[in-house]
């Protein structure tokens, strides 16, 4: 297999509070291959956004990376100094956030912001940068890009603004784009447009995408592989189709069953009892054990690590450990 573009190993992110240190991410590991779309799903508080923030070095203090490593093409980026990290952000890793208004500076025109970003990372003349910017805006589907490039962000509608943000994220031709809930603030009819644009343009340029969202529908359509986070730990990683249709982890199974679809026939939704534990009250053993109907002895004492029961799939669950599985009570 090719070398991964991004490799995260045993990442730990901690937030010290006066009531003890909270582990927002607890030994999270995953890879992103070049050109691949990795979906990152989980409930609010599961740590998906923090994972994205950790990769680009934007964890808000007092939070800090307390362990593990992040490598971009084999080179460690989690311990870089701020100025070195700034060069990677924008140039090698582009970012798209949920709210397009916060990623665009309202005081500058779109042209100014795009040209400045391009020229920060790519050595070229102003005229050339402008040409690139117009071409990019055109590509992300802004009509009359040549004229609209001189507008300010507030002249654009929500969907158009998110297109501008995508253009901004891609203008330095990054190898990886981290998209954190890029469509959550948008209406459903506009959502599909944005997903389409993001997916196509990244495929065109060979940029990998880490798509962080709580919307399984978006993941199903867009991602190649999906990583499921639960309570700051990786529950399952695998190809998107397999994870959706035959999830290995009981949590993923429950999650998939709880989503109402446009085709299902049953009157009741599958529901997982309870809710995700708060970070200060994660149970011993598997974090999912209080809500799991298949939990057995080892689940309450030992934390399962990611293991690979099938090629290309990983799951952190004792049910899939051949050594422990013998103890599973039958019936």
């Amino acid at each position: 297999m090719a070398d991964p573009l991004l490799s995260v190993r045993d990442l730990v992110v901690e937030f010290p509070t006066r009531r003890g240190t909270l582990r927002a991410l607890d030994r999270v590991s995953f890879d992103i291959m070049p050109g691949e779309v990795l979906g990152m799903v989980g409930e609010s508080g599961a740590g998906k956004s923090i994972t994205g923030a950790a990769i680009i070095g934007l964890i808000e203090p007092p939070g800090r990376i307390a362990g593990g490593e992040i490598r971009l093409k084999g080179e460690r980026i989690d311990n870089l100094r701020p100025y070195a990290l700034r060069k990677i952000r924008g140039k090698r890793i582009g970012m798209v956030f949920q709210d397009p208004l916060t990623s665009l500076n309202p005081l500058y025109t779109v042209a100014q912001q795009l040209i400045e970003t391009i020229r920060t990372h790519i050595d070229c003349s102003e005229a050339e940068a402008r040409k690139r910017a117009v071409a990019l805006l055109d590509r992300v589907g802004i009509p009359a890009a040549e004229r609209r490039i001189d507008d300010y962000p507030h002249h654009f509608s929500g969907g158009m603004r998110q297109r501008v943000v995508i253009a901004l994220a891609l203008c330095a031709e990054p190898e990886l784009v981290i998209a954190d809930e890029p469509t959550t603030a948008l209406d459903v009819s506009v959502q599909s447009q944005i997903i389409e644009v993001l997916k196509d343009i990244c495929a065109e340029r060979g940029a990998a995408v880490m798509l962080i969202t709580h919307d399984m529908g978006v993941i199903a359509e867009t991602a190649d592989r999906v990583a499921v986070l639960y309570a700051g730990r990786m529950a399952e990683v695998g190809p998107v189709r397999e994870v959706i249709t035959e999830a290995l982890h009981p949590y993923t199974q429950g999650l998939m069953g709880s989503i109402p679809t446009l085709t299902q026939e049953s009157d009741r939704l599958v529901q997982i009892p309870g809710s995700m534990p708060r970070l200060n009250a994660i149970p011993q053993g598997c974090a999912f054990n209080p809500r799991c109907d298949r939990a057995f002895a080892p689940c309450f004492t030992d934390r399962p690590d990611l293991l690979s029961p099938e090629a290309g799939r990983q799951v952190a669950c004792w049910l899939h450990d051949p050594a422990k599985a013998q103890e599973v009570p039958h019936g």
Partner: peptide, 17 residues
């Protein structure tokens, strides 16, 4: 309806509006 993401993976491509 066309814009709703397809979780059933029926292979239907969303038709962007």
């Amino acid at each position: 309806l066309d814009a709703v993401p397809d979780l059933a993976l029926s292979g239907r491509r969303r038709r962007p509006v």
